[in-house]
Amino acid sequence: MRTIKQQHRAVSAPIADLTTYRALPTQNVEHIDPFLFLNHHGPQVYRPHNRGLPFGPHPHRGFETVTFIVAGDIMHQDSGGHQSVIEAGGIQWMTAGSGLIHSEISSDKFKEQGGPLEILQLWVNLPARHKMVAPKYIGLQKADIPEVSADHGRVTIHAVAGTWEGTPGAVQPLTDMQLATIDLRAGGQLNLSIPAARSIFFYTIRGRLRVNGQETQAHYLTEFNHDGDDLHIEALDDALLLLGHAEPFNEPIVAYGPFVMNSEDEIRQAYQDYQAGKFGTWQE
């Protein structure tokens, strides 16, 4: 079995009135190549007539964002002309690539009625050969994401990307990456084989788990060594897990604000291109 290198507790990093825990990066872990960043917003309950999410128009280049809506909703709009409202159980997959501007706010319905909200956003790096691909957006509701049942129904894998137990996920990404959210009922178990060379991203959203003999809980990111293929997961409570794995790129990572490139020169060029209007036009 893979051994655990360290467990990292997400740090409190509220944004305005939005409860936020940042699991990556923190003082103890910068990235788990190619996984760059994770913000866990909520859980919290919004009152009726609220302002909703605060993420107005902003640019990105050089990576992908994957947004998981656990509760509430999120309305996406971008300079490529895409717009959608994704509700609980759905995901948004945005390839920023060569650059675009987007916003992520709550729907008018949510702002009017309020309710529970819990959303996670993961940033996944793109290798140098793909950093300047054309931007792309995919918005999927819960019903669009294949489910894989295991352990006599006590485990449900929501197959977001890659292939899980022979079932293709909803998204086939540019790189060899697998990504899923996994519901586990108390006592449920899941065994996976993941080649030792691959990076594992293992973040517990809710509940308590035991993985390869070590307990972990909500708001903890578990970092693994590259020394084994087997992962054994057992739910100590009802739990929700965000799990991904991928080949590391082993390329330079230069991140500044909303851009992630391979060099400082490329970061400067990103700012110049954004200021020159090359990321598209924002339509209110």
Results as ranks from 00 to 15, higher is better:
residue 143 A to Y: 02
residue 145 I to G: 03
residue 146 P to E: 06
residue 147 E to V: 02
residue 149 S to N: 05
residue 150 A to R: 15
residue 151 D to M: 10
residue 153 G to V: 03
residue 158 H to N: 13
residue 158 H to L: 01
residue 159 A to N: 01
residue 160 V to D: 04
residue 161 A to Q: 06
residue 162 G to E: 04
residue 162 G to N: 03
residue 163 T to V: 01
residue 164 W to D: 11
residue 166 G to I: 03
residue 169 G to Q: 03
residue 170 A to Y: 03
residue 171 V to H: 09
residue 172 Q to D: 08
residue 174 L to D: 00
residue 175 T to R: 00
residue 175 T to C: 07
residue 175 T to F: 01
residue 176 D to K: 11
residue 180 A to R: 05
residue 183 D to R: 13
residue 184 L to E: 07
residue 186 A to L: 01
residue 187 G to C: 07
residue 188 G to P: 00
residue 189 Q to C: 14
residue 189 Q to A: 12
residue 191 N to W: 04
residue 194 I to R: 13
residue 195 P to K: 14
residue 196 A to V: 07
residue 197 A to D: 15
residue 197 A to F: 01
residue 197 A to Q: 15
residue 198 R to Q: 15
residue 198 R to T: 04
residue 198 R to A: 04
residue 199 S to H: 08
residue 200 I to K: 11
residue 202 F to P: 03
residue 202 F to R: 08
residue 203 Y to C: 08
residue 204 T to C: 11
residue 205 I to Y: 01
residue 206 R to L: 05
residue 208 R to P: 01
residue 209 L to C: 10
residue 211 V to F: 08
residue 211 V to W: 07
residue 212 N to V: 05
residue 212 N to D: 11
residue 217 Q to A: 06
residue 221 L to H: 12
residue 223 E to I: 15
residue 225 N to Q: 14
residue 225 N to E: 15
residue 228 G to Q: 12
residue 230 D to V: 12
residue 234 E to H: 05
residue 235 A to E: 05
residue 237 D to R: 10
residue 237 D to A: 06
residue 239 A to Y: 07
residue 241 L to I: 06
residue 243 L to A: 04
residue 244 G to I: 06
residue 245 H to T: 02
residue 246 A to P: 02
residue 246 A to F: 02
residue 246 A to L: 09
residue 247 E to A: 09
residue 250 N to F: 05
residue 251 E to A: 05
residue 253 I to E: 06
residue 254 V to W: 00
residue 256 Y to T: 08
residue 257 G to S: 11
residue 257 G to Y: 07
residue 258 P to S: 06
residue 259 F to E: 04
residue 259 F to Y: 10
residue 263 S to L: 09
residue 265 D to A: 13
residue 267 I to Y: 12
residue 268 R to A: 13
residue 268 R to Q: 14
residue 268 R to E: 14
residue 269 Q to E: 15
residue 271 Y to D: 13
residue 271 Y to V: 15
